[in-house]
Design a protein around this nucleic acid. Sequence first.
DNA 1: ACAAAAGTGTTTTTTATACACCCATGC
DNA 2: GCATGGGTGTATAAAAAACACTTTTGT
Lengths: 244, 244
Amino acid sequence: MSERSTKQVIKQPLADFKVGVDNAIFSVDTQQNRLLVLLVMRQDEPFLNQWSLPGTLVRQGESLEKAAYRILAEKIRVKNLYLEQLYTFGGPGRDPRESAASYGVRYLSVSYFALVRFAEAELIADGVSGIAWYPVIQVPQLAFDHNEILEYGYQRLRNKLEYSPVAFDVLPEVFTLSDLYQLYTTVLGENFSDYSNFRARLLKLGFLCDTGLKVSRGAGRPASLYRFDAEAFAPLKDKPLVFI
Amino acid sequence: MSERSTKQVIKQPLADFKVGVDNAIFSVDTQQNRLLVLLVMRQDEPFLNQWSLPGTLVRQGESLEKAAYRILAEKIRVKNLYLEQLYTFGGPGRDPRESAASYGVRYLSVSYFALVRFAEAELIADGVSGIAWYPVIQVPQLAFDHNEILEYGYQRLRNKLEYSPVAFDVLPEVFTLSDLYQLYTTVLGENFSDYSNFRARLLKLGFLCDTGLKVSRGAGRPASLYRFDAEAFAPLKDKPLVFI
DNA sequence: ACAAAAGTGTTTTTTATACACCCATGC
DNA sequence: GCATGGGTGTATAAAAAACACTTTTGT
């Protein structure tokens, strides 16, 4: 980040930015087989009363990631989650406030991708603002370029599932292989793989350990409960894994 | 990007940002089997006279990507290149200028990754500033957090080669399969694949067409010249390709 | 003739894919 | 006993990996 020499700065002034963080927060409702994204109703102009991704402007002394965690914590209570940076959208004109009286201030959005455990996620309704889980396949028109961000995040989620163990950040401590399979199915669609092959592949990787416990859910044979073994996984990190 | 309600803004003021763009610009010198990255010597404080990635602060009315292309064009003349956004680094304290008299202005860096054709790339030396291709394996300590950005870009490059056709953006119009193989070898190391298997895999994908022309380079059998067929590739886009 | 580079083919091993089938439980 | 979900195995096809060998050039 080198500044231009002085005469050039005079010729073409630098932009001043406000930096926002917008989160595409996903969760998987395995009960109803739905992939959800968290939307909030905007309380302020611009885009008053339109749905949007939860976001915030970055404060003094606050890192981007901290801002991402803050806005998440303001909207939902959740203990288990995965979060990473997604993409930065910063074209001029992406925020209507830029054209207003403000002296050429630009609004830039660093987007974050998050996956949270649905069962434990408690939405924080502050009485005024709307907040809701929306099935990603039926989100309405969103404020700003948030539909684009969402699309980008959705794609990232699908990729992540294929080659990284994000699913285990969001499953309970112990889970059945059907739980895992269903999570994958909900996100990737029915035809991503057949259950028996999925099962064989995952078990061969060697980081799922059978707790010996069984759980029976209605009819059918009781399922074994597995645990994700982080230690056994560690050496596989950075390796080109395939979960699909 | 929703702003906080008024009382909160007062409690905790928003940060003001200058946004910079820093480029990790790579090229492959297949003659000497070296992967190179473009470094420039800083002319200003902070980090005066230290090597850094070429960067610039974003100007009014300029998009992030445009700024990335601008700084690239200021440093090298090149017709063929690939460019994409890498990551955004924005922790407080990453730029020493923040702590200075400036009223809590933050410096945020949106980094871009670029791959350019080495043979045609002409460095623009403005007489004062140092500018040079450095082998990535022996870059010195860089200004700011640029070593981190570089590492990130290097990883992205390796990934890109494996599942996307970036190589063809940077090879000449016609090239031999050895040219292609050597490019891959230089970036990924000798052991990524054996030439014969690499060759077979690539040809089976069906988007390399033999021009019928041959080229003889010193001793040995003349090699066929191939062309990348963008039309034949189009349907494969978004598919999980493997070039490795 | 022979080294060097390009190109072809073969063998073996590993993965992917599609199923068929057995097992344990609730009703 | 039979429907339901859990779990195992097998047979086939495809891909990855290793490597032997042929072809065509320059010297």
